[in-house]
Design a binder for these strands. Structure first.
Length: 429
RNA sequence: GCCGCCGUAGCUUAGUUGGUAGAGCACUCGGCUGUUAACCGAGCGGUCGUAGGUUCAAAUCCUACCAGCGGCGCCA
């Protein structure tokens, strides 16, 4: 038994092969039928003819429906007329299931494909996306293992919010209520005091009624927290990480990138270091681009898009005014109205993929900031304890892994970057 | 939370000023020994999202409801 990819070569020309998979296309020409077989590795054209098959067997295989499952034995031959250059003339086959009509046909609407995502995941296009996504997640973890980080796991059911209270999903929990996590950050912070450098890959949940091309209510979050690192140190880690992930995709998924029409040469040029631009300087730059922004404005989707068409590498935007970010960010000692944080914006108009920065390590300052934000300190007793016992400077970030896949593949909508997108109006399939 | 849009056959859709629905694909049957989302011929397939209203007459006009899509804000 072989995979299709492994027999598509000169070495197997003329030899007997044994393949299994699903019917991708069928074409019949009277007493000659072509079946394109698909497996996880690729496609190959099968030839069925009455030369090799009895009439009843020929009738059975020449009338196969799309996505029927089967196993075939035959002789492989090089043939330029076949879609992938080789063809197998069927000598015998075993049918696992002859399908009813497959719901997905050549005319496909967006909503229909979302309703039938459980079948659409078989498409060559989606298969290619999932292979790249697999590389991205593996490369993220590998990068940190190579740099001495530990992978840790944090609870998904939590009792305190990382950001604000309004965007949490409530879940019944025996006689109480808990929330689905929005971020693992606070738990990661607890672990730097033993492991020093930690990361996790976990879903985050946001009950925001977002309807945009780059928001999901459930998304995959790659998060890192490291002791002793300052804002600039963390940015150096991140730019190396992004370069590593992108180059791993280039190295391992050239075929998929080509199948999806992604410009591989562009991705090859993604290299650290990335430019750092202070928020205040970025606002000045936007004046010459006519964006009409003033100091204190947040970067919206339209602004990010308009800014990022001017860059062909990711950039860091640093030193945001503190009122634009949440309470735990470290104020800049040289200018306490700005914070030691950074967002990484992806080029080609894709915008924010990472948000991170240095955390406040001083207890009094953190308590004051929480008061300013109207938070109940009792709920955060354990987070505050980290600043009571052996507090150290530390930094971290959160990476939207689905957004990273979205950018790397130059897709139009984040729903194309995840098998089962969860949005405000979709929980099925 | 705000703004906009759509719903006609299994899928993709046409339907003019209101006059009882037309096509392509899929499927079934027939034809074809080199097809490339094959092609040719025939057939099957519709409470026009639901409910109400206006009218001699509603897919078309009005109201409500249901379902979904796109964009903004928020963020990753």
């Amino acid at each position: 038994m072989s995979y299709i990819r492994d027999v598509l070569n000169e070495e197997h020309d003329g030899s007997a092969v044994h393949l299994r998979g699903w019917v991708y296309r069928t074409r019949s020409s009277g007493k000659l039928s072509f079946i394109v077989l698909r497996d996880s590795t690729g496609i190959i054209q099968l030839l069925a003819s009455t030369r090799k098959l009895q009439d009843d067997k020929y009738r059975e295989i020449s009338s196969l429906t799309i996505e029927s499952s089967l196993e075939v034995m035959g002789i492989l031959r090089k043939d330029d007329r076949a879609p992938t250059g080789y063809e197998v003339e069927i000598e015998d086959f075993k049918l696992y299931q002859r399908n009813e009509n497959y719901p997905i046909t050549k005319d496909q609407g967006e909503e229909f494909l979302l309703d039938n995502r459980h079948l659409w995941v078989r498409s060559r296009e989606f298969t290619a996306m999932m292979k790249v996504r697999s590389t991205v997640f593996k490369a993220f973890a590998d990068f940190y293992f190579k740099h001495g980080y530990y992978e840790v796991h944090t609870p998904f059911m939590v009792s305190t919010a990382a950001e604000g209270g309004s965007t949490l999903f409530k879940v019944p929990f025996f006689d109480e209520e808990v929330y689905l996590t929005q971020s693992s950050q606070f738990y990661l912070e607890t672990m730097i005091f033993s492991l020093e450098n930690v990361f996790t890959i976990a879903p985050s949940f946001r009950a925001e009624k977002s309807r945009t091309w780059r928001h999901l209510t459930e998304y995959w979050h790659g998060e890192v927290e490291a002791a002793w690192l300052h804002n600039e140190d963390m940015m150096q880690v991140e730019e190396q990480m992004i370069e590593y992930i992108v180059q791993e995709v280039v190295k391992n998924n050239t075929e998929e990138l080509n199948a999806l029409g992604r410009d591989v040469e562009f991705l090859k040029r993604i290299k650290a270091p990335f430019r750092r631009i202070r928020y205040a300087d970025l606002i000045k730059m936007t004046e010459s681009w006519g964006l009409g922004m003033k100091y204190g404005d947040d970067l919206g989707a339209d602004e990010e898009r308009a800014i990022m068409v001017h860059f062909d590498q990711p950039i860091f935007v640093t030193h945001y005014p503190s009122k634009l970010k949440t309470f735990y960010h470290m104020p800049d000692p040289d200018n306490p109205d700005e914070i030691l944080c950074h967002d990484m914006l992806a080029p080609e108009g894709y915008g924010e993929i990472v948000g991170g920065g240095e955390r406040i390590s001083d207890l009094n300052l953190l308590e004051k900031r929480m008061e300013d934000y109207g938070l109940n300190k009792d709920n955060y007793y354990w987070y505050l304890d980290l600043r009571r016992y052996g507090s150290v400077p530390h930094s971290g970030f959160g990476l939207g892994l689905d957004r990273l896949v979205l950018w790397i593949l130059h897709l139009d909508n984040i729903k194309e970057a995840i098998p089962y997108p969860r949005t405000i109006r979709r929980t099925k399939p």
